[in-house]
Design a binder for these strands. Structure first.
Lengths: 200, 200
DNA sequence: GCTTAAATTCAACGCATGATGAATTCTACT
DNA sequence: AGTAGAATTCATCATGCGTTGAATTTAAGC
């Protein structure tokens, strides 16, 4: 079927059929924020990618920050992760469990994209950094510290190990860690994480 | 002494006295690249900070990339670090040595600034990421792998631990790791690094 | 079927950016 | 002393940005 002119951009007015544009914009926003970070991604770029006028983005989300906040909604549910990690395992298997959950997230595009966007944006934008700082403190440190009685600085050291490896693997793409299998990485990381949790 | 009008900007032509402007520009460039990353920092911002016309920046360094490359010259000398780490210690003290050297670099503003600039920029700029990838491969992985016979992926895991902690401490500023003393961090990190080097 | 509201585009604003070429003032060399 | 060249600024260009207000088309509620 030929592309109907009324569904293609170029003419003002509402498009026929149900509205799917809003979600498409958010999708493209997530992708671009993930690729270029908050400051690097542009409203106009997002609009272009979504096949939409920039003003429509503004109409839906108000400001650029509004787009970002909306796009970052529910990237991952910390509580779900926590119960995944804590659930069926004993404390001396925390390392393996954490490594596995972490890699699952990063290997699944649908979840990697918003996380990457958050990470990249936090590096150069102070407001996003604040968002992430609060997230790490409230959603990660608090619960883990309480649930397992591990010193916060040790949890952070473990989180640091994971973030650093993610940077080398997914952002910089340094070999050989970028091409390692998930299994290899679990074996590489799990004992290290476990070490952080066992001491002190 | 009142500020001589001829040494203040606002009038075209060469300023009297020896030329110190070039270095000042590079200094400001390093600072701004460190604060905002490559894309976030602007030639005009650098010029403003240095009290200089933007065209002068262009005159000295040609393009923005030229400024960056020049500003990133000799941030750290990998060979010096390597001999520091390798020099007087036995292999089972590698962890401590590496943690100490790493923290010394980050605690010294003169060396932290270019490293931060590199890290922030590599996150959002593909070209800088390529620079950093090559640096990590050639200057870090190669030598360490050869000198100590440690599997590259293990060296990368250790580097990942360090980078991740640096992000939490110096970029995001998450507590309590942001306020920990150098000594505390060495004790926290050294065994982990050592672990990566001992296995396999 | 009419009307209100939502979706969509157009046109435009003011601003910042990286880049360039020409003009001016000083230093360094002869 | 005179001159070549370096340092410095000015004015300007095209481009892309985030934002805004008005106009147009469709969908939903009555």
């Amino acid at each position: 079927m030929a592309a109907d002119a009324s569904t293609r951009p170029g003419r003002p007015g509402r498009r026929p059929g149900p509205t799917e544009t809003r979600e498409k914009i958010l999708d493209c926003a997530r992708r671009l924020f993930a690729e270029k970070g908050y400051d690097g991604a542009s409203l106009r770029g997002i609009a272009r990618e979504a096949g939409v006028d920039p003003a429509l983005v503004h109409h839906f989300f108000g400001t650029k920050q509004g787009v970002f906040i909306e796009a970052m909604r529910f990237p991952i549910d910390p509580q779900a992760i926590l119960s995944r990690v804590a659930g069926t395992r004993s404390r001396d298997e925390l390392g393996v469990a954490l490594a596995e959950v972490f890699l699952e997230i990063w290997e699944d595009p649908a979840r990697r994209v918003p996380v990457l966007a958050m990470l990249r944006s936090a590096m150069t934008n102070e407001q996003v950094a604040t968002m992430m700082r609060q997230f790490v403190s409230a959603a990660l440190l608090g619960p883990v510290t309480e649930a397992f009685g591990i010193a916060p600085i040790r949890v952070e050291a473990a989180v640091g190990q994971l973030i650093g490896v993610a940077m080398l693997r997914y952002v910089l793409g340094v070999e050989p860690i970028a091409s390692a299998t998930r299994q290899e990485l679990v074996e590489l990381l799990a004992p290290t994480l476990q070490r952080h949790f066992d001491e002190g």
